[in-house]
């Protein structure tokens, strides 16, 4: 029962990701695409340090290591 709940929850999240991305790609949409949101976050800098860029790329590196090497 709890396992089905977890699977259902994660599937719901994935479907929602796809649905919002689909809505973002419609003509005249006011929702930015996931790529645009990522690009905006990656622009964040503290002084000369590209904190957003380092954080995002580092997170993605860790994610790949976590799923594909662990």
């Amino acid at each position: 029962m709890m396992r089905a709940l977890a699977i259902g929850g994660f599937l719901t999240a994935l479907v929602l990701f796809a649905a919002v991305e689909w809505a973002a790609r419609r003509e005249g949409s006011r929702i930015p695409s996931l790529a645009d949101v990522c690009a905006f976050v990656m622009r964040y800098e503290v002084g000369p340090v590209p904190v957003g860029r380092i954080g995002f790329l580092g997170f993605w590196w860790w994610l790949g290591w976590h799923f594909l090497a662990r």
Partner: peptide, 22 residues
């Protein structure tokens, strides 16, 4: 990269929150 995000960007909080909660 966009300089500003439209208010519709808040929709992304929905899947992120559901995933984060689970």
């Amino acid at each position: 990269a966009p300089h500003r995000l439209p208010a519709g960007a808040a929709w992304w909080l929905l899947p992120v929150t559901v995933f984060g909660v689970f």
